[in-house]
Design a protein around this nucleic acid. Structure first.
Lengths: 278, 278
DNA sequence: TCCAACATGGAGCGGCGTTCCAGTACTGGA
DNA sequence: TCCAGTACTGGAACGCCGCTCCATGTTGGA
């Protein structure tokens, strides 16, 4: 790690925007959203603020760039399209997928109702790519939501929109409904992934003491203790929440939206609804 | 503004958590997310930080409380349930709905396929309640997303979850799917409302110079100028995005999810898919 | 009447994002 | 070989932030 070559030289390796973004991602991964400060960044890069500001306009742009880098890596891993066989992830490590949770398989579906490369499957792949990226970078959903609600025309939104949209088109959705169908999918994916990330992140904060099961248990208990008059439904689903599996639940939601799309926009479809569903 | 009654007395009206939250909401509405600082708050309330910290633990809790107050007001306006005729909005003004955009009606649906008080309609009402609240408080979606992805067990999530969940149950969804169906709806609503709020907020930043149409036009043009090799789909829907109506689009997405729910979880349903859909 | 508990607000601390600018290494032309 | 110009660096410092400390004012119960 320590550059030992020559001291009188300014630095072994020149500072670059790429290196700065990479360090920012590492800081975010290690210390969370509050961990990324320009002071921590200058120390890690052994430089001063001016050097960083030469490459990056402000902290917001740095956060956007970090988010974009991670999302780009996640989406390039997901088989969005068989084209472009070359071109691996640029920065950001290759998302140590799955990890703690059990099944890497899409779970649920008992038998493949569609061919393995159907648009439905590809949409699930894109969604799980993001899902896994969020598991590796707990700060991602917050940043994603911020960026989405602040400037929807940044680089991240088009990236995700494009990946999903291609498959919506491949599904046979008529052009007039592309925007609606894709929006619905993207909104669901980001929202659900964000919420699930909160589970993972919270569970990670106390790794040995409280594991995921205990954490969900506590949350479920909190729900059960709400006022029965004001929150009858919440109390009723508290048990269901305790036992749910993140990935399975996530997939079920996607299938819900996919079913809606095929039913509403493909009235004469042959395949029809996706699989899963008990 | 300036309390003139008696000086030697500490203040005309005692400070309370409610008054603080109310002032916080006003500051957020007036100056955006960056406008809420403890210094601005002390000035507006003619007090010091200590007094505020006596009622509120920290800034995060204040933001949570402000978010909760606005959401509670929005949901109490939406006819989530005919029970409890009394009990109006506590704090926060009653959401000056619609405002700039044209139709207050749910738009879209040509004829009511369900009775006007169907669970579907109530879900739409809840969703539009949040939608309108966001139009009046552009900082809301960001805060909502933050809160959702940071601590999903706060007071806001159960509130929304409860409002939607009751209608999901009323739809006849079997108990085993309540959590999944409700989650999908909530995620879509929050995601879509947040994105649409970004449009509204950006358009409001330059009220006279750039109106909403011009803003969408610019965004659409930006999408059309993306690399055709990397973003073929985005370019194809750019025109569709320029012409879309926020509320109509929002409703279409809800119907998409509702259709998925009824198709997947109510196999023998009579009413079936919601209305709208050309 | 007194006093403990409640409530207040001014002063100030440490840390943040950001700016300023003197200085250092490379570059190409003379 | 020099030297001016450019690209880049990093230390010092500024203004504002959230937050804490604490002396002080107010009030309800004994």
């Amino acid at each position: 790690m320590a550059p030992r070559t020559r001291r009188p030289q300014r630095r072994t390796e020149a500072l670059s925007r790429e290196r700065i973004v990479e360090a920012a991602v590492e800081l975010l991964d290690a210390a969370g959203e509050g961990g990324l400060t320009f002071r921590a960044l200058t120390e890690r890069l052994a430089t001063g603020p001016g050097a960083i500001y030469w490459h990056v306009a402000n902290k917001g742009e740095l956060l956007d760039a970090a988010t974009d880098a991670v999302v780009a890596a996640a989406l390039s891993l997901a088989p969005a399209e068989p084209a472009k066989p070359a071109g691996p992830a640029e920065s950001a490590e290759p998302a140590e997928s799955a990890g703690s949770s059990g099944p890497t398989e899409p779970a649920g579906s008992t038998e493949p109702a569609e061919p393995p490369d159907s648009p439905q499957d590809k949409i699930r792949a894109v969604a799980f790519g993001l899902f896994d990226a969020i598991e590796g970078h707990p700060w991602l959903p917050t940043q994603l939501a911020l960026q989405l609600s602040r400037s929807p025309w940044g680089s991240v939104t088009p990236r995700i929109f494009e990946s999903i949209g291609r498959q919506v088109r491949a599904l046979g959705v008529p052009e007039g409904h592309w925007f609606t169908a894709t929006s619905a999918l993207v909104h669901y994916i980001l929202g659900a992934a964000g919420q699930n990330a909160a589970n993972t992140a919270s569970a990670r904060t106390f790794p040995p003491d409280v594991d995921r099961a205990e954490f969900l248990d506590a949350a479920s208990k909190a729900w059960e203790e709400l006022d029965p008059d004001d929150y009858p439904f919440i109390r009723a689903v508290a048990a269901e929440m305790r036992e749910h599996d993140d990935r399975e639940q996530f997939l079920a939601g996607i299938d819900l939206v996919l079913t809606g799309i095929t039913a509403l926009h493909l009235p004469s479809t042959q395949g029809g609804a996706p699989s899963s569903a008990t």
